[in-house]
C-alpha cells in the first residue's frame, strides 16, 4: 500500500432496509488524529453510519477503509469473521448505554479482551487495567462491579475498556445521551483529554457545545445524506444550507426550553424549601 490513502475512507456508503434508504451514497474521509462530530436529527442515519464503520451494521453498498485496509471486504464467512475481528481490535467503540459486562468487575471488564485476544498474562493485564483506569480517573473503583457505579463512571470504564485494546480509531455513539446532565461533564472531560492526545475520533453527538469546543470538523447529516460539513465555527455560526440552519435553530430552541424548564424546577424546589 504505497499510494497515499486517507486514514478513514468511506466510499459511497449505502444502507437500505427494504425500500427504506437510511444511508444514501455517503462518501467522507477522516484524517489521522482528526476529531469529527456527526450531528443531525434522530433518524438521519448518523448512528448507522458510525456502526457501519466497524461493520456492526453492514452496508448494503459501498466500502469502508481504515488505514489502507478495507473493513467490509467481501470474503467467505469464516475468512471474513477472522478479518473483521482483527479490524475491530483496531477500532474502539463507546455506546450510549455503556454495555459494560455486568457479571465482571471493572478490572475484568477492561482486561477481558486483551487477555483473550492478545494473550496478555494476568500480571500484564492488571497493569494495563490500572493504567487505563487511572487515565479515566476510575482507578479507585477497579474492584467494583458495574452495578455499583454511576452512569458517568460506567461510561468512563467503557472508554477505558475500549482503549485497552489500543485502537487506532475511536467511535462514540451518543456517549453522553443516556447520562443525567450533571454526569455529562466527567465523560466529556475524558473525551477532551483523548482529543488532546490526538486520538482519531468520530463522535455522534447531540451536544453542540462539546462538538464546537473539541472537534476539528462537524458533519451535519439529514435523511441519509451529508448536508454540510466544515469547521465548527462555520457549521455552527455560518451554515450555508437551509436544513442546517433549521436544525440548529430547533435544537437551540429545545435546548433553551430545557434549560428554562430546569431553572423553573429549581426555583420551584427552592421556593418549596423556603416555604417549609
Amino acid at each position: 500500500m504505497t499510494e497515499a490513502h486517507k486514514f478513514v475512507d468511506i466510499r459511497h456508503a449505502q444502507k437500505a432496509y427494504g425500500d427504506l434508504e437510511v444511508l444514501k451514497d455517503i462518501s467522507l474521509t477522516v484524517d489521522r488524529g482528526e476529531i469529527v462530530a456527526i450531528i443531525g436529527p434522530s433518524g438521519s442515519g448518523k448512528s448507522t453510519l458510525l456502526r457501519a464503520i466497524n461493520d456492526l451494521d453492514s452496508l448494503t453498498g459501498g466500502e469502508v477503509w481504515l488505514d489502507g485496509v478495507q473493513i467490509n471486504k467481501n470474503l467467505p464467512y469464516r475468512q471474513y469473521e477472522k478479518h473483521i475481528n482483527a479490524m475491530r481490535q483496531q477500532v474502539g467503540m463507546v455506546f450510549q448505554h455503556f454495555n459494560l459486562f455486568p457479571h465482571l468487575s471493572v478490572r475484568d471488564n477492561v482486561t477481558m479482551a486483551p487477555k483473550l485476544l492478545k494473550g496478555l498474562s494476568d500480571k500484564e493485564a492488571d497493569k494495563l487495567a490500572e493504567e487505563q483506569l487511572n487515565h479515566v480517573g476510575m482507578l479507585e473503583r477497579i474492584d467494583y462491579y458495574p452495578s455499583q457505579l454511576s452512569g458517568g463512571q460506567k461510561q468512563r470504564v467503557a472508554i477505558a475498556r475500549a482503549l485497552a485494546m489500543q485502537p487506532k480509531l475511536m467511535l462514540f455513539d451518543e456517549a453522553t445521551s443516556a447520562l443525567d446532565p450533571e454526569l455529562v461533564e466527567e465523560v466529556n472531560l475524558v473525551m477532551k483529554r483523548l482529543a488532546e492526545e490526538h486520538m482519531t475520533m468520530i463522535i455522534v453527538t447531540h451536544e453542540m457545545d462539546f462538538a464546537a469546543s473539541v472537534c476539528d470538523r462537524v458533519i451535519f447529516m439529514d435523511k441519509g445524506v451529508v448536508v454540510e460539513q466544515g469547521p465548527p465555527s462555520v457549521v455552527f455560526q455560518n451554515p450555508t444550507e437551509e436544513r442546517t440552519k433549521e436544525f440548529l435553530r430547533k435544537h437551540l430552541a429545545q435546548h433553551h426550553a430545557q434549560n428554562a424548564a430546569e431553572a423553573a424546577a429549581l426555583t420551584a424546589a427552592q421556593t418549596n424549601e423556603g416555604a417549609k
Binding site: 475481528n85 475491530r88 455506546f95 454495555n99 485476544l117
Partner: peptide
C-alpha cells in the same frame, strides 16, 4: 441478554463464540 452485550464484545474484536 441485552444484545448490546454481544455488540460490545464483538466491537472489542471477540468472535461470536468467544
Amino acid at each position: 441478554v441485552d444484545k448490546g452485550q454481544m455488540e460490545a464484545a464483538r466491537t472489542l474484536g471477540c468472535s461470536r463464540s468467544q
